[in-house]
């Protein structure tokens, strides 16, 4: 039974840890499917986390915090769009710039406004998103096997967790069953064809980036308002890049993205759980090895040893109308 409980606990933290990855990964999915590379997921999540926690603690409302997180994150996505769509700048350079501006400004504004060393004040209960206990969860807790699964894994998360997982079928539906999605995918593969059909490539890509901004905003809000109860400097800690890795791992498909993020979240949960405890057969695994594993896996995948990941064809190329 101990083993079972341990597994439930690991799976529970897998869900918690994979939510920000999943949201950021789906965010990247929208922009990359539309042909805009986005290295700046990390930065947008970070500003979202900061804006969310700051607004929530000032206005004492979790919803205002979430709204602010989305707003600021979309604003940063628009900077990326302005540079890489309107001015046809290098998308990677623009994304790198956004990461730096985000990293610097969140700490500096945090220090200037709250003077707590770049942190925001700890959020009170009403200012964060609380865990939702599903009906009957407490009553069913003692039922063997199914009880803990229902009480721990399915029930007892915050609303943002459910939103994140609902975004997976929703994104699939948007991309593959709506006109907007068809056009969005087309603009990432062959923008000239979309242009010929009389649809604005720029406006379509801007809309894709708005979707990206909304999702990174929610991801940031999750980090600072659910997982942590306040903003801490550099709290994204490379999650944006892992999300990017997961996106490639998932071959730019929403359902695969969910599994990739759950896998990376699971590795993270496992490495926390196994800290210092020796495994049977292998012996003691260094924590650093577990932490590096998502990156190593991505490199191996990119090398084409686990099936080939083919990016959207027009990705990274600014669209220039024929003159």
């Amino acid at each position: 039974m101990d083993l079972f409980n341990a597994i439930i606990q690991i799976l529970d933290s897998t869900i918690r840890l994979s939510v920000p990855l999943l949201l950021a990964c789906l965010a990247g999915l929208y922009s990359e499917r539309a042909g805009v590379f986005d290295i700046g997921l990390e930065g947008k999540m970070l500003v979202g986390a900061f804006a969310g926690a700051a607004a929530a603690s000032v206005f004492h409302s979790a919803l205002i915090g979430l709204g602010m997180a989305i707003l600021i994150s979309v604003a940063f996505a628009m900077i990326h769009g302005f540079a890489s769509i309107t001015h046809r700048g290098n998308q990677i350079v623009s994304g790198v710039a956004i990461n730096f501006i985000a990293a610097g400004s969140t700490i500096m504004l945090g220090q200037a406004w709250f003077s707590q060393g770049g942190r925001t004040p700890a959020l009170a209960p009403g200012e964060r998103f609380e865990a939702i206990t599903w009906p009957g969860a407490d009553a069913l807790r003692d039922v063997p096997i199914l009880g803990p699964i229902y009480a721990e894994l399915i029930s007892g998360h915050s609303i943002l967790v459910y939103i994140a997982f609902l975004m997976v079928p929703f994104t699939w539906w948007v991309l593959f069953r709506t006109r907007f999605g068809l056009r969005l995918r087309a603009v990432g593969e062959n923008p000239a064809a979309v242009d010929t059909a009389g649809i604005s490539v720029a406006w379509l890509r801007y809309r894709a980036l708005i979707c990206t901004g909304v999702l990174t905003g929610i991801a940031g809000a999750y980090l600072s308002m659910v997982q942590n109860g306040g903003f801490v400097k550099d709290m994204t800690a490379g999650k944006g890049y892992i999300a990017l890795a997961a996106l490639i791992f998932a071959k730019w498909k929403p359902v695969n993205a969910m599994f990739a993020c759950l896998l990376f979240g699971f590795l993270d949960a496992l490495s926390i759980r196994l800290q210092g405890t020796p495994l049977p057969v292998i012996g003691k695994v260094p924590v650093q090895f577990m932490q590096a594993l998502p990156y190593v896996l991505t490199v191996i995948l990119l090398a084409g040893f686990i099936g080939k990941a083919i990016p959207p064809r027009a990705g990274g190329v600014p669209y220039v109308k024929e003159r």
């Binding site: 046809r88 790198v96 730096f100 610097g104």
Partner: peptide, 25 residues
């Protein structure tokens, strides 16, 4: 005291943005 050393990171980002991505603006 209101300005921390992270100001440099912001400037760095702005330089990358304006001298790199928005080079032709």
């Amino acid at each position: 005291p209101a300005i921390s050393r992270d100001m440099i990171v912001i400037i760095q980002g702005l330089v990358i943005l304006f001298a790199g991505a928005l080079e032709h603006m």
